[in-house]
Amino acid sequence: MTQLSVNINKFATLRNARGGNNPNVVQVAKDCERFGAQGITVHPRPDERHITKQDVYDLKEVVTTEFNIEGYPDERFLRIIEEVRPAQATLVPDPPDVLTSNAGWDTIKNEKMLSDIIRQIQSWGVRTSIFIEPDDQLMDGAKKCGTDRVELYTEMYASAYHDDKENAIADYVRSAKHAHEIGLGLNAGHDLDLKNLNYIKRQIPYLEEVSIGHALVCDALYYGLENTIQMYLRELNN
């Protein structure tokens, strides 16, 4: 069964827009788990424009499902991973000033750096995943880096889905099969929603986890958080 990890960054964005603690992201995480989510994802950026460092430490005390912390692996991020010891650390290549993750790693160019960082994180008992585009050479590079999993960057799939879903998914199916053949676990994320989620799940049988934030939070404004999480779970496991 593919697990749903809810990225709660946008709840923190809403809180920060007004100050105070409404919505309370710790309570949101607990509610997401109570409503059926199998994981909680956060991305504590250096400017703390959504999830703060303190949020991460507060969440450590309450998250009972899989806790996934994603981010650019600078010194600050690695210190958080060492101290929090989440279930999974997802490494993304975006620098601190970008709006959102918009590309995968060049695992060939960055092999030495990624290998060293991955070994360090794994020595803390934390599973590693790296953000990657659907390319077999980059997938082989990820394997050489020693990561446990990769997370397929699905923005290209999501953008092309409505025009030609078969063509949109083709590279991802090939890449997913290759990852499975070389022994890499497989996650996916970015712009997945209620319209395109079921199709990618049916086409990629090896998918272990999806991380969904923006679309899920937007849907929750209309459907309510509990109902929305159940809707996403149905799309994943129908």
Results as ranks from 00 to 15, higher is better:
Pro86Asn: 05
Ala87Cys: 10
Ala87Asn: 14
Gln88Leu: 15
Leu91Gln: 01
Val92Ala: 01
Asp94Met: 08
Asp94Thr: 10
Pro96His: 12
Pro96Cys: 04
Asp97Val: 13
Asp97Met: 10
Asp97Thr: 14
Val98Cys: 04
Val98Gln: 05
Thr100Ser: 12
Thr100Arg: 10
Ser101Trp: 00
Ala103Thr: 11
Asp106Cys: 02
Ile108Lys: 12
Lys109Phe: 08
Asn110Ala: 02
Asn110Arg: 11
Asn110Trp: 05
Lys112Tyr: 04
Met113Phe: 09
Leu114His: 02
Ile117Asp: 01
Gln120Tyr: 02
Ile121Tyr: 07
Ser123Glu: 07
Ser123Gly: 00
Arg127Val: 14
Thr128Ile: 08
Ser129His: 02
Ser129Arg: 05
Ile132Cys: 07
Glu133Lys: 09
Pro134Ile: 06
Leu138His: 10
Leu138Asp: 00
Asp140Phe: 07
Gly141Met: 08
Ala142Ser: 13
Lys144His: 13
Lys144Gln: 14
Lys144Met: 09
Thr147Tyr: 06
Val150Leu: 13
Thr154Asn: 03
Thr154Leu: 11
Met156Thr: 11
Met156Asp: 13
Tyr157Glu: 08
Ala158Phe: 03
Ser159Ile: 13
Ser159Glu: 12
Asn167Tyr: 07
Asn167Ala: 15
Asn167Pro: 00
Asn167His: 12
Ile169Gly: 05
Ile169Pro: 09
Arg174Tyr: 03
Ala176Phe: 07
His178Trp: 01
His178Ile: 02
